[in-house]
């Protein structure tokens, strides 16, 4: 009981520390660092929404770039082609992400396990194909350039704070969600689908709803990304993006909320700095994939948890 209380307190302090750091950092770092932190937040949202499926519900999706990309492309098309405002672009991006996610979910949820991986992968390929070839809409290989933020958040730091507020909101929503009854059901599905079915839960519907939430928030990340990078191209939707999102979750720790954020932060910082030190950045990232899978299947959060239980045992003894 006391331990639990302490743990909660520890968590609160940790969250407060991270939040304080995030809020204060623009005051003492250069613009590039703010840009990098902004990237961390956006990929963090994508990783969080993927984790909802992967870590909490046990549905490994190999195609989250599709929903991210749908949000991104919808935003870019609305903003650059039709001159829509920030708010209008947001609404359309979310609707587009919802529609695409719903269709994909209907198809993908017919399968499970490795077939689910395969189907989500194939669906993402289809979306990539659209981005790449539907020239009149997406600009094809050219991508879409010149997406401007509204004047009041044109500035790097303002947009960073905007993203931070959104990310904090997403984090809060997700923590409420995973601690709710619904969240317990998610974990139940991960542990044993058949048992949940026997208990009278509509497993399919639960999975569908989780898929939808995950897809929507991925679309939100795509929306934020486009206004961040003011450019979108088929490479944003490609296989590697889906894989990177999976790596972020696995690296940080699936089935936790802090994990995906931690994973995305580490990944983004590495991605932006490795090539300052070595030409062999492909090998470095490749080895991270291999090492994480082999030696840290529960990610960094898993390590911390292990450490805690171990030390906790000696403490008691």
């Amino acid at each position: 009981m006391r331990g639990e209380l302490l743990a909660t307190r520890g968590r609160v302090i940790a969250i407060a520390a991270v939040l304080a750091f995030a809020v204060a950092s623009p005051l003492f770092v250069d613009e590039f660092s703010v840009l990098v932190l902004n990237q961390c937040l956006i990929w963090g949202i994508l990783a969080l929404s993927l984790d909802l499926m992967l870590g909490y519900t046990g549905m490994a999706s190999l195609g989250h770039a599709a929903y991210f990309g749908t949000g991104a492309y919808a935003t870019a098309i609305m903003s650059a082609t039709y001159g829509a405002s920030f708010g209008e672009a947001f609404v359309v991006a979310i609707i587009a992400a919802a529609v695409v996610t719903a269709i994909c979910a209907l198809v993908a949820l017919r399968a499970s396990d490795v077939y689910f991986l395969m189907i989500t992968f194939a669906l993402a390929m289809l979306i990539w194909g659209l981005a790449y070839r539907w020239d009149s809409m997406t600009g094809g290989e050219n991508g879409i350039a010149g997406i401007d933020r509204p004047l009041f958040m044109e500035d790097t730091i303002t947009y960073y704070y905007f993203t931070l507020i959104v990310a904090a909101g997403v984090f809060l929503f997700f923590s409420v969600l995973v601690h709710s009854c619904f969240g317990k059901t998610m974990v139940g599905i991960r542990e044993s689908e058949s048992r949940m079915r026997a208990l009278g839960y509509n497993v399919w519907l639960h999975k569908f709803i989780i898929y939808m939430i995950s897809g929507l928030f991925s679309g939100l990340a795509g929306f934020l990304w486009v206004y961040y990078n003011s450019y979108v191209a088929p490479t944003d939707v490609e296989l590697v993006t889906s894989f990177n999102a999976l790596l972020m979750v696995s690296l940080g720790g699936p089935g936790t909320l802090a994990g995906p954020l931690l994973g995305s932060t580490i990944f983004v910082i590495l991605d932006n700095s490795v090539n300052m030190f070595t030409e062999r950045s492909l090998t470095v990232v490749g080895c991270i994939y291999i090492v994480v899978v082999l030696f840290a299947p529960e990610g960094i959060m898993g390590f911390i948890k292990q450490l805690r239980t171990k030390v906790g045992e000696t403490d008691n003894g």
């Binding site: 490795v114 894989f243 696995s250 492909l282 899978v293």
Partner: peptide, 22 residues
């Protein structure tokens, strides 16, 4: 070593893609 870990297997093959490309 990763038998039964579908996701781990996919991720590790991606790792090899990058290493081999390099």
């Amino acid at each position: 070593r990763l038998q039964g870990n579908d996701l781990g297997q996919v991720l590790i093959t991606m790792g090899f893609v990058l290493v081999l490309q390099d």
